[in-house]
Each structure stands twice: as C-alpha cells, then as structure tokens.
Design a protein around this nucleic acid. Structure first.
Lengths: 338, 338
DNA sequence: TTGAAAGCGCTAACAA
DNA sequence: TTGTTAGCGCTTTCAA
C-alpha cells in the first residue's frame, strides 16, 4: 500500500522506466501503442510522479519562496495574489512564509527555503538591513525585494512611490488651506516610514510651511500607536487641523481615537492616510487615502524573478518604483476656516 | 560556485560522509575533536544540507500543505496563523495554497502537493463534495478538514458551531422583541450556509415564530450579494425589523446598503452578523456579531493532523465543533417598538 | 568511533 | 523507438 513508483508503472506496462519517464514528461518519441499502455498502467496504479526525486536530478524545484512580514495585514495577501498568479502561469509553485515582522524568524525561514532548494525568493523583509538574508545572498539564489528595500546587498527591488504618495497627500492638505498638519510617521529606520516622512517634508518645503516639530510623531506602523498618537494630538493646546497617517493600521487606530475623543473629522480635522483600508468607505466621513497597486506589485516582482531564474548571462540590477494614487474622499474636502 | 554537498564537507574535514551526516543530525557517537573539525568545514563552505536529498531517503518531508479558499478573506490568515504556530513547534513547515474558491484549482494544488510528498494536508475545501481531493484520499495521506466538512469521504474535521452561533444570534434578536427577522443566507449547498440557516430556524421555532418566507434570502457569501439583498429588504412594503447576516463579507455589503439607503440601524433595524469584521467597531452603531475562535481552529487542526501523521495504529475519526461567541454591541440593543 | 556501500525515485546520456 | 545505466545528495545498515 506504499506509493507506486515509476518502476511499478514500467513493470506493469512492460517497458523500461526511461520510457515511462518520456511519457510522463511528454518528450515524444514513444510509439502510440506503448504510450497508451503506459497511460493505462499509470491510472491503474494511481501513480503520481515523485517531485522530490525529480528535483534531485533536475536540480530545480520549480518552486519559489515568498517571505512576507504579516499575513494578517491585508496589504500582503493582495501582493501575494499577484505573485501567485504569474507564478502559476509559468509553472512555478509558490511557498508563502510569514515572519510576523521578526528578523529571526526570517532568518530561519530563509534557511528552510534554501534547504528545500527553492529556485528563487521574493521577500518583504522584516529588517531592511537584510543581514538575516545573508545565506540566501551567499548562495547566489535569485532574490527580489518587494515593498521594502534591502540595504546590505544589491538586489532587484520593486517599490511604490512612498515619497511621491506622501507628497501628494500633504500637498492636497496644504492646498485645502491647512498649515498645522500633523504626521504620524512609521519607524524611521524603515524605508516606507522614512520616505513617507520625506514626502511630507517635501510638500511643506515647497509651500514654505515650516516643519511643525511638535506635530511630527513617530509610531510603529501598528494600530495601537496610531491610536495613542492621535490622542496625544487631540490633547494639545493648539491642535493640528490636519493629520497624515503613514500606514493602514495606524490609520485604523487614528480613526478609533478620533471617534472616541469626539474630534470632528471633516470639520475640525482633515485626514489622509497612506494605503487604503477596508473601513475607509464605512466611516463618516469616508477616508481619503493614498492607494497602492498591490497586485501589480506582486506580478512585477515575479516577472523580474522569473527573468533572473531563467536568464543565464549578465544581469543588471533593476529598481522599479510604481506610482501610488491619491483617492480623495470626504475626510479632507473641507477648507480650514481658522 | 555551485552548492557544496556533504561530500565536500567530508573531504575538507577528512572524514566520511556518514560521519558528517551524524553530526548534522546530532546523532551523537562522534568524537568531540572530529565533530569540531566537521563544524568548521561546514561553516567554511557555507554548507546547507539539501532537504530534497534527505526527503528522498527519509521518505518524509516534514512539510504539511494547507489549502484555503480565499487568502483575502481575513478569516483564513488567522486560522493559518494558528496552524503555522503549532507546526513550527513540532518542526513542520507549512505550505499555504489558495484556491480562490475554485474546485479545479483545488484539484491541481492537491496534485502538486502530493507530487511534492507533503506529510499531511489541512484543507478548507472550495467544494464540500470533495471529489477534487480524491487523489489525496486514495493515497491515504493524513487529512484534516477545517471550517467546511467534506461529504464524499470520512475525514477528521474541525468546525465551529454554525447552528449554535446562528441560533444564539437569532434568539437574541427575538428576545429583543423582534418578530420580522430577515436572514441573508449563504449558499445552501455549503455547510456554513446551510447550518447557519438551520440555527436561525431553530430559534424561530423555539419561540413559535413562523418562518417569514419572504425574508429568507440566499446570497453567495460575497459582499455584493449582501449589498443587493439588503437593498431588496429595504424596498419591501413591510420591512423586517432585524437582519441576521450569514458571513463577514455579506455583512460588509449589508452595512454599505444600510448606510446608502438611510435605513436607521440601531433604531428601525437591529442587526447581527456571523463572524467578526474589521469594520464592526467603526460603524455607528457598532455591529453585534457571532465571533469564531480562528487561531484555535488552526491550532486544533494541526494538533489532530500531527497525531495522525505520527500515530501508527488504528485511527478513530474525530469531529470537533468549537463554540462561537456572541458579541453584543450596539446594532441590536434596541427594542422593537412596533 | 568511523567508513564503505547500498539505495531512495527519477532523468538523461548513450547504446542498441 | 526503446533499454541500460550512471548518478543527483543524502541516510543508514553493516563492518571494522
């Protein structure tokens, strides 16, 4: 009752394993009658080729590893959908791994994926320094970084325009007449956190609004911090008239705090968040956001990886930056009347 | 520059591959000095053991496959988190696959996972009939069904109390004084869809409220259908005073429709949804829901699978049903004043 | 405590 | 058109 092997099939069909292999792999050069006999044997035995053995000799697994930091953040499943779709099309299988934002787990998973001989790696790293990916780099396995850059090594990268998106959002708020604009930043040692702050500053500079030091708050990209920092802003003597939140989860926390404090969003307070969130169109007023092309991000990442995996010659590193889109809804349409 | 093998390590350390293998697998029985020499060789060469070759001889991959129908439905990532955690603890690696609710893709993925010789399978099937899992069953590979039963075969199953949850929700509405209670059902050929309807009917019967045929609407568990069916309810001559929605996505659609029509939830309309949703605490009034223990579901599923994978003797099928929890918030606290 | 060698299931020359 | 055979990198007897 153990699994049938290619040999069992060969015996039953009275041919050699080589011929069975030819049929399985559709290589042709097998007489029609023989092929039919083999096909019959295969279905009779419920034979399933052993990919492990195949990988052993082919030295390729037709598998890519995808490492993401947070599977419960809806952003990543969407990116993964894009990756998977392209991968399927090219006959690659996708193995998804979640690090929970832990560089240590990322290191372990990288090790496991290398042991399992994945043909390539797409990663959104938990630590942009990237040392935890060292062993993958040493191996020379194709890698593409998505959404977060990797500093220690030269790898192909697909990002979205963080600076651009934050700039557009901030500018929009400025053009609405706001001068006291707060920003809830992400960690400044991450590319998204840092760059979104840069875009924010850029817009202020352009319109010659001095950076309001007291209104620059640093969170950790999690809901809790968005909540607390918003409370802090509300408790200020001179409150901001607008808030820019640097990511989706902090936006959620921010909205919760706004509701709880009774701050009047859309009246006393204008708001734009980075990244669309489910709740955006449910709250009143609906939330204006900077929206990113998630699927596209994933598709492009795989396409690049695929080229790397299949190309033989020299490879020129590529860095793509996709454009975000400003979605204006109700949370920032009012003019500041102060 | 190709990958170093165990042989390279053996040569460098001037021992046989057998000894290196002993060290790698921590089997003991190796002289301290030898072990150190080998360890040094390993790190010098950046040697990573090849799991493919190991699986080849061990006939186990220490890998489980997890098949889910929709990675973008936040319910599943949470279940997967539970699975992964337990799996990691036992040294198993989790391979996550998404079928997009397509039985055909499910069949393909099952095939791929079998080819890759996963040691076990946890699946939330896209089609409860389960024929697309036939080959896995034939192989006799351990399988655990999660959240959705599989009809064609006897497999271990972990579900949540759909009937119970729907019953509790409906009863709560009844006790609030409601008589005209609508239900937005899921597909009646799925266990969740069917059972939640059963729980609904059970509560009505218990309180001798006749089933209001016109208020029983069947959706497809997607947002769109929740939206449309709610519009339909609103347009009725005699509207319901309460709605029970059978899943999270339809709840979202329902809420959208309620907001759009101007129906006064919490006043003219009471609402309870099955499954918690992100927006539940953001809308006004906040939504009462039947909440399920997602992580726990995943943990239990792996625990059972693990037992099956490691046990040798007879195996008694198990069917677990976890209890949901009724979370009362604001959307149903009002009394019907008709 | 160590090594030699067989073999896991498959593919890919090379021969016939 | 088909078969023979040598590995792929590893683990595991069995001997030494």
């Amino acid at each position: 009752m153990s699994k049938p092997t290619i040999e069992d099939v060969a015996k039953l069909a009275k041919v050699s394993t080589a011929t069975v292999s030819r049929v399985i792999n559709k290589q042709g050069g097998v007489r029609k009658a023989t092929e039919e006999r083999i096909a019959k044997a295969i279905s009779q035995l419920d034979y399933i080729p052993n990919a492990v053995a195949r990988s052993m000799v082919k030295k390729t697994t037709k598998t890519i590893g995808v490492i993401i930091p947070d599977i419960n953040n809806p952003f990543f499943p969407l990116v993964v959908s894009g990756i998977e779709q392209q991968a399927r099309e090219k006959g690659y299988f996708t193995v998804l791994c979640n690090t929970n934002e832990s560089p240590e787990i990322e290191r372990e998973l990288t090790q496991i994926l290398l042991e399992r001989s994945v043909d390539g790696l797409i990663v959104t790293t938990a630590d942009e320094d990237g040392k935890q990916l060292q062993s993958a780099i040493d191996r020379g396995i194709p890698i593409v970084a998505v959404d977060r850059a990797i500093k220690s090594f030269e790898v192909d990268t697909v990002l979205v325009g963080n600076i651009d998106g934050a700039y557009q959002a901030t500018r929009h708020l400025i053009l609405q007449g706001h001068k006291r604009i707060a920003i809830i930043c992400g960690p400044q040692n991450t590319t998204p956190g840092y760059e979104r702050f840069v875009g924010f500053k850029k817009a202020l500079e352009e319109y010659q609004i001095p950076l309001p030091e007291d209104l620059v708050l640093e969170g950790d990209f999690k809901e809790e911090s968005g909540f607390k920092l918003t409370q802090k802003l509300y408790s200020m003597q001179e409150r901001p008239t607008a808030i820019f939140s640097s990511n989706n989860l902090m936006t959620v926390g921010c909205v919760k705090a706004v509701m709880e404090t009774g701050w009047q969003m859309g009246k006393e307070l204008a708001f734009i968040g980075f990244d669309d969130v489910d709740i955006a169109t449910f709250v009143t007023p609906s939330l204006s956001v900077v929206s990113r092309p998630m699927r596209q991000l994933g598709e492009l990442a795989f396409d690049i990886l695929y080229e790397k995996m299949t190309s033989t010659g020299e490879w020129v590193r590529r860095h793509y930056v996709l454009s975000p889109e400003l979605k204006i809804r109700q949370s920032c349409t009012i003019k500041n009347t102060n």
